[in-house]
Computed example of a mutant assay.
Amino acid sequence: MNSVTATGNTIDEAIASGLAQLHIEEKQAEITVVEEGKKDSLDYLAINLLL
């Protein structure tokens, strides 16, 4: 089982980043939001993708 935690300013950016790291399509991953917040006045989102 492979997993990766990815971040982005939007959910779409975070998902795209994680999918690229695992070299898979969205339908192949179980996606869970890990954390949402602000850092240096920017919104961020961390997700976990499990293959």
Rank of each mutant, 00 (worst) to 15 (best):
T5M: 11
H23F: 11
A16V: 02
S41N: 13
L50N: 14
I24F: 01
I24M: 14
E25F: 06
L51D: 01
G8C: 00
L42N: 15
V4E: 00
V4L: 04
K38M: 11
G8E: 13
I47E: 00
G8S: 06
N9Y: 06
K27C: 05
V34I: 12
S41I: 00
E36M: 12
D43Y: 07
S41G: 09
D40L: 12
L19K: 06
D40N: 15
L51M: 10
E26W: 02
V33I: 15
D43V: 10
K38W: 06
D12L: 06
I11W: 04
L49I: 15
L49P: 04
Q28G: 02
L42S: 14
L19P: 06
Q28Y: 09
L49D: 02
T10S: 14
G18M: 04
L50Y: 14
L49G: 04
I47V: 15
V33G: 00
L49K: 08
L19E: 04
A6T: 06
H23W: 07
E25K: 14
A14V: 04
E26A: 13
I15A: 09
D40P: 02
M1K: 15
S17I: 03
T5S: 12
Q21L: 13
L45Y: 04
N48D: 11
T10R: 07
T5K: 14
E13T: 03
E30V: 13
N48K: 15
I47D: 06
I15F: 07
T7E: 15
T5N: 12
D40F: 07
G37M: 02
D43F: 04
K39E: 08
V34C: 05
T10Y: 08
D43S: 12
A6N: 01
I11R: 12
V4K: 03
I47R: 04
Q21F: 09
L22Q: 02
E35V: 04
S41Q: 11
I47G: 00
S17W: 05
Q21V: 11
A46E: 14
I15L: 10
A6H: 08
E30D: 13
E26C: 08
T7N: 11
A29W: 00
G37K: 01
E36G: 06
I24E: 00
D43C: 08
E25M: 09
A20T: 10
E13I: 00
E30F: 08
G18P: 04
E30G: 07
E26M: 09
K39N: 12
V33C: 04
A14Y: 02
T10K: 07
I24H: 00
A29I: 00
A29V: 01
G37S: 07
D43L: 05
I47C: 00
I31K: 09
S17G: 11
L22V: 06
K39W: 03
S41A: 12
K39R: 14
E26I: 08
L51N: 09
E30S: 09
G18T: 07
A14Q: 05
E13F: 07
L19M: 09
T10N: 05
A29L: 01
E30L: 10
E36A: 08
E30I: 10
T7Y: 08
I15G: 07
G8V: 01
V4N: 02
Q28A: 14
L22F: 02
T7C: 05
